[in-house]
Write a protein that binds this DNA or RNA. Sequence first.
RNA 1: GGGCGGGUGCCGGAGUAGUCAAACGGAUCAGACUGUAAAUCUGACGCCUUCGGGCUCCGUAGGUGCAAAUCCUACCCCGCCCA
Length: 404
Amino acid sequence: MSNIIIDKQKIEELLTRGVENIYPNRDFLEKLLYSGKRLTLYTGYDPTAPTLHIGHSITMLKLRQFQELGHKVIMLIGDFTGMVGDPMDKTATRKQLTRQQVLENCKEYKKQSSAILDFKGKNPVELKYNSKWLAKMNFAEVLELASHFTVQQMLERDMFQERIKQNKPVYIHEFMYPLMQGYDSVMMDVDGEVGGNDQTFNMLAGRTLIKELKNKEKFVLTTKLLTDASGKKMGKSEGNMIALSDSSQDMFGKVMSWSDDLIVNGFILCTRLPELEIKKFEQDLKSGVNPRDLKIKLAEEIVKIYYGEKLATVAKEKFNKIFSERLIPEDIKTEKVDRGSYKLVDIIFNYKLASSRGEARRLIEQGGVEVNQDIIKDWQAVVNIESSKIIKVGKRRFLKLDPK
RNA sequence: GGGCGGGUGCCGGAGUAGUCAAACGGAUCAGACUGUAAAUCUGACGCCUUCGGGCUCCGUAGGUGCAAAUCCUACCCCGCCCA
């Protein structure tokens, strides 16, 4: 057991940093936080993919703030809901996953999240799985649960509206998703839930449910989403996400490819840097500091969370070498091959620098391939491996071939 | 149960017998520009190839025909309307 910390500044940050909305309202949660009561709250993560991504880190960081104030935080793995899939996609039904796929995906979640959340210590985050109660429900119980909501309420959800407009299917089981999520709240008897802005509907369903079944007011805190310039979500569905399983180098590179207008939000949502410092960066940006430098700082901060300071620095240095100075990194993959001549296309394909020979050929023709710093545009070119050759494909794929 | 519409490449979405590996948009990849960006512009974007071509592909299975994503038959699936 730990004591509840009542720290004005920390509470203020909890209530505002990266927060989109608080239900029923900010005052409600604020009072709770000052009451000295130990709150139980959670965020659910559906194991629909083998890895968590940077978007998940936003809620995890929020949970962390609660944890530091001494509240009881539950990380809920939606191993049951994950099989159904939240009907997130505006246009199509998400594919249902098998039990096995889901379990497979769960494995890494704890590991990945422990960079932010503390699973040890005096006030550890508790890991729960919602199959524990959802898998056991019988039909009568499901019906009872369903009777708390109307079809009209479910149809309010904009993605359903969208699909109806487009004559796309909306399945009955998709209506069940918010119910299940709501039931999680009831079964864990929580005081509140934290989730992304896109989860508002589901979380509010839980609010309704726990009010009806337990006469309890659950707070819901929604966090802002990390969106790019066009307002597009940076998520796994869009392909530009940073997986928490990415290497430090990849992570760094991906942050650097973010649009500039993501920098400030990136700091607020994805790092633990003090807000004051972030404010200063914001000023710097306005006064004409090269955004690149701040983005480097951001990338470093993010990598630091998951890989520690040393690797973050290494990633930064390496990045500078490859991209700013356009040098070839020292520790590239090296293969020993028999002396002789090889077709460049074959080398690229065989060492998986391209996924097909056709692609290898295209890359060459488009000037994306260098051998020992020389751009080769002849796709029929042959490379002599009598001495070491460094093959560069695109911006970041390198291979060194040494003769045996 | 009845009527109508539909199932196309990673996604969306044209095409409705030959010129279709299939318009267009998105995603992706490469090049230019730059700050490593983003935006923009250019190009590519099924697989194999001795660069002549070859192979696989338009819900599934058959059929007609010199030729099918396109026509016919059966089946599976989806949407809308009526009941």
